[in-house]
Amino acid sequence: MELYIGDSRDIVVTQRDMTGAKKINVKRNRKGDIVLYDTDEIITAKIENFKDSPAVLTMIQHIPGQWDMEKCTLDKKELKLGVGYKKKHANTLEFEIKLPARTEAGPAVKELKMHYHRRNIRPGVNIRPEPSIIRR
């Protein structure tokens, strides 16, 4: 059971899309239109803890469609599926990030970098093939 108490302002996450969904493995038809492609995506998230006590942040990332992770690192240390992060659903990942307390110099910073490929994307088709069934 979960109780939503409120929003936190002491832990800040800044997420950036570094590549803008670059197309790779592009397959074209005779006319030259793209019919199938994969993408190469890198997402970085900078997490800062401004609190005086350590905290654990559960971060949920969504990746639509068919995908596979190329490399996932937290502060340059590699995370493996099942060990470093969990797959809650075909399109949902859950990371548990332990953050130390802030220091005199400033907030505690951790950087999560996800490098993954989205596969077999057909242009014109709705990216989400399956409505995710989330229990309310």
Partner: peptide, 24 residues
């Protein structure tokens, strides 16, 4: 009862004479 989709992927793409996708 809680059903969860754990994995999704597509494969076995087939292309027709024009190079368009004809099956998967």
């Amino acid at each position: 009862v809680e059903p969860t989709l754990m994995d999704y992927r597509t494969e076995n793409y087939r292309f027709d004479r024009r190079g368009n996708i004809s099956g998967f």
